[in-house]
Design a protein around this nucleic acid. Structure first.
Lengths: 227, 227
DNA sequence: AAATAAATTTAGACAAACCTAAAAAATTGT
DNA sequence: ACAATTTTTTAGGTTTGTCTAAATTTATTT
């Protein structure tokens, strides 16, 4: 991801990131109104900024036709996302934040400008491939392994993935997980599914265990498929 | 250091910090021109900002009479300095930056707003008392141990302190230090000084050694005196 | 104690990023 | 197809932090 050798304001970076995320939802161009909502601002402000980004060749824009990122803009977006997700790993792994507390702070840290910092942070964290929410971390060149986050109940037998989240964060559920040696970050393989009641056998650190359909539909696995 | 419950812009924080540092140099009020030079801006811009800070009760200001920080402003300054220095420790201790590379990045990181972040960073670093340059880190309440950085050649016998810097960073000198088991971060005590040639005996990890006046005048110790 | 020099402030402007209100283009419903 | 609705853009204004140039105050010299 070739570092962008031109100055970008905080606001410009936020717009680029918003446009990237919105264009992931459905591949088409992104609507002015959609950006305005995402950015908590007014459509007229979006038009102003989009013109500016267009002049810098970061987006492709034709009046009334919506916006999309240029290749340059896409790389900028991925570089910001890389920083955001690396900082999230840092906050969770090193500073003991829980994975649902880190977003806001990472939103600030992602704007820190220093390539050396990000390289060293990446190394310090052991070159992680996904953030604490299971989202993939682009590498320096902007490549990342596509991955999908799915409930165990939705996955076929023999799928394998890292446990990255829960649907139900009640104390009772979390206690159940703890008792059964299931923790975020563990790798599980789906060994068998009982068609009768939807219960599933998965491998864990302490050997295979059987979980009910109810449990399986509350646990997210992160499935990485190399591209 | 009670977190300031009012919004501060990046620029306001930079001015407060600049005024703090300048008022450390000589205790009087700080001149507009001095701030302008420090901030790389024009005196007229300083006047504007100082008026704004005065309205927020962060500085005491009378036209043509210079500025000084209010107690509130002093606490804001110390909170920024605390953040700056903690990040510097992080960069050196955890990310293996060398102590002369960290300032710029820390200038950015010091503006990240999250009390939880700083508390956890402080804990993660083991509650350091000084930064990699030997400058003291204020605690949450804005207290810090006053400390002075002095050359070994300037210190009386029986002084004790942490080695925090060198005057001469030539390869030859750094090799000499390495060979003699002297490293940044080590604690030394001055055991004796030879009046004849100014050579000094200091305690090291591997026992007492004798160093010449030339060496003694190139090594900074950080002397902490509790207040 | 003037005259000169230096420091500081005021006045008026500008760019960035936002706003409101009105106009223009695109989309939708019948 | 065309009227109504929605989306988007334009026009003009605001705030923050900066600037230049001119005016004012303070400091220094002689």
């Amino acid at each position: 991801m070739y570092l962008y050798y031109f100055e970008m304001t905080l606001s410009e970076e936020d717009y680029i990131k918003a446009i990237y995320h919105l264009s992931q939802i459905d591949g088409k161009t992104v609507a002015t109104n959609a950006i305005a909502e995402q950015m908590q601002t007014k459509p007229s402000s979006v038009t102003d900024m989009v013109k500016k980004l267009s002049e810098k060749s970061l987006v492709k824009y034709k009046k009334y036709q919506g916006v999309s990122l240029s290749e340059k803009g896409r790389l900028v977006a991925l570089s910001i996302i890389r920083k955001h997700r690396l900082w999230e790993v840092f906050l969770v792994d090193k500073l003991n934040f829980s994975w649902d507390e880190v977003h806001e702070v990472a939103e600030q840290l992602e704007h820190i400008k220093s390539d050396a910092l990000i390289d060293k942070l990446d190394a310090h964290l052991g070159f992680p491939k996904v953030d604490p929410h299971g989202d993939p971390i682009p590498n320096k060149e902007g490549f990342f392994t596509k991955s999908v986050k799915k409930l165990i109940s939705e996955l076929p037998v023999l799928s394998e993935g890292v446990c990255v989240g829960v649907n139900d964060s009640s104390v009772a559920f979390l206690k159940f997980l703890d008792k059964n040696n299931i923790a975020l970050g563990d790798t599980f393989k789906i060994l068998d599914r009982e068609e009768f009641d939807g219960s599933v056998t998965i491998s864990t650190r302490v050997g295979p265990i059987r979980i009910s359909e109810q449990i399986a539909s509350n646990l997210f696995l992160e499935i990485v498929d190399e591209e």
